[in-house]
Design a protein around this nucleic acid. Structure first.
Lengths: 185, 185, 185, 185
DNA sequence: ACTTAAACGAGACGGTACGTCGCGTCTTAAA
DNA sequence: TTTAAGACGCGACGTACCGTCTCGTTTAAGT
């Protein structure tokens, strides 16, 4: 294993940029997020961003769905009802997180036109609770795709059309029940 | 009831602009849709657009979800399974329409930051199959909001993450079944 | 005589930009003159500049050699010695003006690579004292090109290599004498 | 007398860089000359350049006015007319050389803002025909500065405003005559 | 017929933000 | 210490598109 030639990248700048992006997303939203503002808050400049991410969307999607986040734990109790409820809650936790909430609408717009971003985001989510859920459901003998589509889709729509604050325990219960009955044999 | 003074607006221009917008949305997508291009294709000028719509998003949302569209008919058979299936199909038909498909991601982004647009789009959809579905379900003694959220959300997610071509009869069957069991007493 | 269609250009912005350019040229020099700084000082933005001038050089050359300047008067006494001296002085006045002095080195660099600018600058100078001098000399029966080349070239070199402050009366006398003898029959 | 510690500098790289610079100056001009391109053509890297020259201008000025050039010979016949003509020709040869011609406008711009470069270029020219000319004229009992200023200035202006191709024998004759009469007692 | 008032074509406007280029520097491992 | 390699931080660039404005002209309805 050799070292790459050339000056190594400064990891502190990566962090500063991601942090600045997350903060600004919450403060001003995706549409009003400018690369100049990100660079300035991170104490660096625009080219440093573009050296690391190919677009605003790629930067935002990494800030909104960090891979190193303390993994949303979905306990494996063996009881489908309990586990499914945990999955729904995890799904809400991921999408309703303030940074994600601010970024998602913009990301949706961009990744419709950018296959690169599409792939990146799908991969990133597959490593999160959605991937966990898929495994768990498959082990329970349930074809997972339809359920995940319904779970994530319902969450997304609720988020987009009413804002994340309504996604409380009652909403989670209601949605879990619908899904649970929907997938019953 | 009096007539507005001054030169009346030319209705042919309204149409030409909406048509040009729809065409361009399909051809280049929302992000690369420019007002100059719309005006040029419609054979008019930008001020003529802004006299009619307050922004690109307002124009696009009207082009994507025309109110005068031949209404997607949802037959009222009285059989919940049959009717629900028709609702799902209508939902797919609306969102998977080429123009809507091109416009939706961009609209999602914009209306996250523009309450005006949010209201306009919600109203427009409520007049369409979603409104019909709500009435129908309510009459069947079912609380409609959760079902609609699940139905539209699942459709939206499928559309965004896989493109509309996979939303065939099998998908409609699968989704209808899940919802039907989910809302059973 | 018809009016051009479209919104007319705001002449006050033209002026503000030229004034800002002249000021900044003196303050920071051509190399450190940035379009952003010009725009900011003029209270406008970069695109407003590029709508009016095709490059920094075109802007600077207009700021450095304004056509509407109170014309450098070259009295026509009929005495060649007197008149030539006045021409040399006028030449110095034009090139040693603080704004011109700051702009000239940069302009030289740019117009070597930009025929557009070359033509523009030649035309602009031909309307100034150089044009007057050419006419005057021709009337005196002297082939003007060689003299003008020598006069302007000597002035330019002196300016570039020693700064304009040394171009005092003694320098003007010395140069006038050299030229006068040089063109004697 | 000791040797510098560490790895000695590779003289072949010096040459390759100067050659690459000269070639590229002629091909693309000073403004479009990039350090990356120079390094690439010379088969080395940018840091190797900056170890040798402090800036693009310093590199270009050395490439344009090489000290080791076969010295432009100015024969010393003792006849002022003959010698002055040779000086003018030498001046043209130096400045109209393709590489110098490409570099001069850019260098003028840079050394207006860089005293280091100013000094370097003046020193380099003083070692060339201008230095020779000064000595020769002084020996002939003529105050040399004014003549040199006129000679070099006229050449420079002609070069800048008409391109070097017009500086033929006729031009040299004409200019020599003007100077000769101009400095006559 | 004349006035009023708004829509029209045309196109430039002011301005935000973009993504890129090239400078000169720095870090690394090998020579 | 120089080399090759290449990324770095940074300042500045010129452009694209937004939504607005200013014209002079056209079109109808009201007087």
């Amino acid at each position: 294993m050799t070292t790459a030639p050339g000056r190594p990248r400064d990891r502190r700048i990566d962090r500063a940029l991601l942090d600045a992006t997350a903060e600004l997303l919450v403060e001003v939203g995706y549409a009003d997020l400018t690369m100049d503002a990100v660079a300035e808050r991170a104490g660096t400049t625009k080219p440093a961003i573009y050296r690391r991410w190919r677009s605003k969307a790629h930067l935002a999607h990494e800030a909104a769905f960090p891979t190193d986040a303390e993994r949303v734990q979905v306990p494996d109790t063996g009881d489908l009802a309990t586990d499914l409820r945990a999955m729904v809650r995890a799904c809400v936790d991921v999408f309703a997180h303030p940074v994600a909430r601010a970024a998602v609408p913009g990301l949706i717009a961009e990744f419709a036109a950018d296959p690169t971003l599409h792939a990146a985001l799908v991969g990133r989510l597959a490593d999160g609770p959605l991937g966990t859920a898929r495994d768990r459901l498959a082990r329970a003998g349930i074809e997972p795709d339809a359920v995940i589509e319904a779970m994530a889709g319902t969450t997304l729509l609720a988020l987009l059309f009413r804002g994340g604050d309504d996604l409380d325990d009652a909403w989670i219960d209601r949605t879990t029940t619908l899904l649970l009955k929907g997938i019953a044999p």
